[in-house]
């Protein structure tokens, strides 16, 4: 594990956290999507570096898959829906952008606090990594809660997925290939379904505002 130096690791973590916060702070869906793409690329680079340093082809394979599948296909799919829906703004409810950033900061602190007992990880940076991973999960949930455009909520799910992936990575130092591929395939299929559903929503309501779905209640 000594492969990635502490400095590099911290740099990657900085990118991850900043991108997470920026997603929460962004006012346009396009921007949030872009930040998420940046984040996913950072995650795949982290995996790739891990694989290269330890000379594990499996891990490299996972990294490449991530780069193509998640950072490549998903943003393209979502961008297409976005263009069709002509939605630009994220649709704030409950919290405005500034407030949500403050809340996200508080959630980061909580994430650091709850990972305190895991200080004993092999590398000091890994504990930071775990905290950031959990913070990303929180951000994802927060984003789904305080935004009402369906695509932003999808971004929230993807954020959670990144967080879970990172947490798994930092805790186990490389999950088995099968699990990685499974989880990635899972999220890919999920996104495809969500895209279909979003198109359906667009046809029915001419908008991606999830509030419209309330009229479906019996």
């Amino acid at each position: 594990m000594a492969g990635i130096s502490e400095n590099w690791l911290n740099l990657v973590l900085l990118v991850l956290l900043t991108s997470g916060l920026s997603i929460v702070y962004s006012n346009r869906v396009q921007k949030a999507l872009n930040w998420w793409t940046v984040q996913t690329i950072a995650v795949s680079l982290l995996i790739l570096a891990q694989g290269v340093y330890h000379d594990e082809p499996e891990v490299i394979f996972v990294g490449v898959l991530l780069l193509i599948g998640k950072a490549g296909i998903i943003p393209i799919l979502l961008r297409r829906v976005l263009r069709e829906s002509k939605t630009a703004w994220v649709g704030e409810i409950y919290l405005k952008r500034a407030t949500s950033l403050v809340v996200a900061g508080a959630l980061t602190i909580i994430a650091y606090d709850v990972t305190k007992p895991l200080m004993a990880l092999p590398q000091a940076g890994f504990r930071n990594g775990l905290a950031v991973a959990i913070a990303l999960i929180f951000f994802g949930l927060l984003l789904m809660m305080i935004r009402k455009v369906a695509i932003v909520q999808v971004v929230g799910i993807l954020l959670i997925d990144n967080g879970i992936f990172l947490a798994g990575f930092f805790l186990t130092q490389g999950m088995p290939l099968l699990v990685e591929m499974g989880s990635m395939f899972d999220i890919l299929v999920g996104i495809v379904i969500i895209v279909i559903l979003s198109k359906q929503m667009l046809e029915n309501y001419d908008s991606l505002n999830v509030d419209h779905m309330r009229s479906l209640k019996g």
């Binding site: 409810i93 409950y94 929180f138 949930l141 927060l142 789904m144 809660m145 305080i146 009402k148 999830v210 509030d211 779905m213 309330r214 209640k217």
Partner: peptide, 11 residues
């Protein structure tokens, strides 16, 4: 029946 609220409970 608000999705946002339910997600909030989740968080």
């Amino acid at each position: 029946g608000s999705i946002h609220l339910y997600l909030g409970y989740l968080l």
